[in-house]
Write a protein that binds this DNA or RNA. Structure first.
Lengths: 239, 239
DNA sequence: ATCAACAGCTGGTCTATACAAATAAAAATA
DNA sequence: TATTTTTATTTGTATAGACCAGCTGTTGAT
């Protein structure tokens, strides 16, 4: 039991070499990197080992491979897709518009069966609940109905959510490690129509979002957007 | 130009064997699949070839591997990230349901101003247009209205889209390198209601998708999903 | 000048083998 | 019985070599 040193695979060094080269601009986006056989000689490994390293980077979208031609550095990085979607305040500010919040509810409640299931707590356990509307230049663009597990955000109720967003507070206190989204189209309920200042016939985008911090399910949010005022957008580069 | 037969790699057959087993419930979620060496004997290939097949499925989140133990069928369906929502056929098959297509339109047309803008061609240029409905066990789940740049998919009109999906054809002929999505909630038009067999009051998820292959804007699709029959789902692990 | 045939390069796949590392099950020990 | 050690199994990594298919640039013919 002496050597607990986790021996690093050789292909790892090659991956680092490539990634370093990209970071240091030795390998610029769009340029061709040395062929497998050359890297194999350079590192003193077999071609298949180089292949493993390059293939990994290719599957990760960092490199583009063309049989008979060569391997190229991808132009743009794959962005974390839906991350932008969560920070609506940032989004609005990026458009040079004014972001404001109307707070409707902020309190501790017992968890209903549905909420308990989503948050992974027992029915009746105390959870924190916030309900607020995000506005862009005064116009409602998102109804945020959020349930938080008190264990991972004890000071949640003490925050001033007319000044900072729940998302902002949570990000600071329990770093986001996992997100789950589901998106569907729905018709708004009566109270929701009022808070979003829309008609009963306007379809809405409903986004459910659950966020984890190191395996802990921190919060569960229901984000409702008027169909005519909001779009989700994402751009990704694959391989 | 004799052999247009795209020789299929051997590991592909092994992947299909596994995926079939999962679809047919021979390999149920959580159960262990045969070890590499056994599959190698079964298919008469070397272990490394089996390794490639299993590794691919593992990286896709369909299988879970444990050194010294074995390979297991993943419990949760690796839900496609929102961006992967492209392959609706695969999604349906993963649920062990029947996927079918009703084709409404497949023809060449002059590009309207809007389409030209989206596809990056000149107004009036000839583009290919397909309109079809995807069904899950006979029930419409997606209306696919697609416009394709003929330059990157010359044989598009010759395909039998009741058998393969446009997406499948495009993936084979111009590997996907970039995707752009926008998502919004809308009410369906009259004709759309009919094709999706829904009522005029059912909100729909409208997904615009543009796909690139090595910088070339290949296709522009408008995907309409009945709100009550479809959800987008995405799960992201950050770090 | 244009086009077709060819050769060389590059990645894609595959083999047969080998050893390492992790795990589970069996065996030996306290 | 409970714990430790051993063994067998399984995946992970790695090699050297091989052939194929697609791309590019060159050569050669028209």
């Amino acid at each position: 039991m002496a050597d607990r040193a986790p021996r690093q695979p050789r292909y790892q060094r090659i991956k680092e070499y490539i990634l370093d080269g990209i970071a240091k601009r030795t390998f610029q986006p769009g340029c061709k990197i040395p062929p497998e056989i050359e890297l194999a000689q350079l590192f003193g490994v077999s071609r298949m080992t180089v292949n493993k390293a390059i293939r990994d980077l290719s599957e990760a979208g960092i490199l583009l491979r063309f049989a008979g031609d060569g391997t190229y550095v991808a132009e743009r990085k794959a962005e974390a897709p839906l991350l932008d979607v969560n920070n609506i305040a940032q989004e609005i500010q990026a458009r040079s518009h004014n972001h404001s919040i109307t707070l409707y509810t902020l309190r501790a409640e017992p968890a209903t069966e549905h909420i308990a299931l989503q948050l992974g707590v027992h029915v009746g356990a105390t959870i924190y609940h916030s309900l607020l509307v995000h506005r862009e230049d005064g116009i409602p663009v998102q109804l945020e109905d959020r349930f938080v597990n008190p264990s991972w955000a004890p000071d949640y109720l003490a925050q001033d959510f007319t000044r900072i967003t729940p998302n902002h507070y949570l990000m600071q206190h329990s770093p986001l490690t996992d997100i789950e989204h589901t998106v569907e189209a729905v018709m708004p309920q009566r109270e929701e129509q009022a808070m979003l200042e829309i008609s009963a016939t306007e379809p809405c985008l409903l986004v459910f979002r659950r966020t984890w911090s190191h395996r802990n399910l921190v919060s569960f949010a229901r984000l409702l957007h008027p169909g005519t005022r909001y779009k989700l957008r994402s751009q990704t580069q694959l391989d």
